[in-house]
Design a protein around this nucleic acid. Sequence first.
DNA 1: GAGTCGATGTCAGTTGCTGACATCACCCTA
DNA 2: TAGGGTGATGTCAGCAACTGACATCGACTC
Lengths: 187, 187
Amino acid sequence: MVRWEPGSRGRLEEAAMALYAERGYENTTVAAIAERAGLTERTFFRHFADKREVLFFGAGALQELLVGAIATAPRSATPMEAAAAALHAAGERFEEGRAHSVQRQRVIDANRELQERELIKLAALAAAIAEALRRRGVKDPAAGLTGEAAIAVFRIAFEQWVAESNRKRLTRLIDDSLAALKTIAGG
Amino acid sequence: MVRWEPGSRGRLEEAAMALYAERGYENTTVAAIAERAGLTERTFFRHFADKREVLFFGAGALQELLVGAIATAPRSATPMEAAAAALHAAGERFEEGRAHSVQRQRVIDANRELQERELIKLAALAAAIAEALRRRGVKDPAAGLTGEAAIAVFRIAFEQWVAESNRKRLTRLIDDSLAALKTIAGG
DNA sequence: GAGTCGATGTCAGTTGCTGACATCACCCTA
DNA sequence: TAGGGTGATGTCAGCAACTGACATCGACTC
C-alpha cells in the first residue's frame, strides 16, 4: 500500500485549472488548489515556483519541439523558412487539444498576472528560436529578429484559432499570418 | 507651513530606482522605499499598483507619443512607414536620457518579475500601435502584425543602444533594425 | 468660522512564498 | 531479513506584498 497517490503534479495542474476557470485566478488560493488535489500548500510550491507557473508547465516541451524542428530543417532553408517549419510542428501539436487550449486561454486572458507570465514564456520561445538559428549559422540581428517575428506570427494565428468564430486549422492560420507578415514588411 | 512635502510620487520613484540599483529588486522592501522617501508603505501603494509599477510609470506618456505620431503620419504612408515614424519619435525622446535608460534596463534585466512587467507594457504599446493603425483604415491582421513587428524592431534596437559597446544613435539603430526586418521577411 | 476635500497615517488582516525540521513508505544492501 | 538511506510529503513559524477601514489635519470654499 502506497503512502500517497502518485501523480501529484498532474492533480495540482488539474485542480488549479478547474478552480481558475470556475472562480477566477484571483479568487483562488493556493491552499484551495492543494486541498482539491489532496495535498498541502507547501507541496504545491515544491512542484511549481509560484501560483502562475502551474498553468505553464508544458512550455519546456514546446520549446524542445521548436528547437528540434529548426535543427532538422533543410540546409537550404532561409531563417524564416526554418522558423516557419518549427511553427508548423507546434501548430500540429496544439491541433488535437483545442478545447483545452481555449479554456486555458480564457483563464489567462482574464488575468493580467497570467498574461505577464505568458508573455515571458513566449519571449523565451523567441530567444530559443533565435539561438537555434544561430547554431545554423544565422547572424544577428537576423537571428533575433526572426525569433521575434516568428513568435508574433504564432501569437496572431493562435489568437484567431482560439476565437470561437473560426474553424480553420491552426497550421493554416499560421500560413496566413506568415503571408501577411511578408506583405507588410517586404513592401 | 505645509503638512507634507510635495512630489511624493517622484520621491518614491527616485527612492525605488536607487534602492533597486543598489541592492537589487528582490532585496528591497516596499517599506524601505517608503522610508527613504519619507512616507509610509501604505502611501506607496496608493501611488503605484504594486512594487513593480514604480519603474513603469512613464509608459503612459510613451504610448501617447506613439499613437500621436501614427495619427499625424502622411496619408500616403504604408502601415509600416507610419509605425516607423512613431518609433523615430520615441527614439528621439529616449536619446537625451541614455544614462537613466541604461541604469533602468540593468535593474530590469536582473529580475524576472520586472521583465514580465516590461513585456506586458511593450505588448500594450503594440496593441496601441495596432489600434492607431486601424483608425487609419488598416485592416486586420495587418494592423496587429505591424504593431507586433514594430515593437520587435524597437526592442532589438533599444537592446543594442543600451549595450555599452555601442555609440550609434537610437534612431539610427531603429533604421537598421527596420531594414533587417525587411530583409528577413520580404525575401 | 464651519464644512468639505484630499493626501497621508495607522492598524489589522489575508495571501503568496520560504526555510527548517519531522515523518514514513519504499528500496538497497549486508 | 534487519537496518539504514532516500525522496516525497507534512507541519510549523515567519516574512513581505498587498488591501480595507478608519483617523488625521492642512488647505480650500462658502
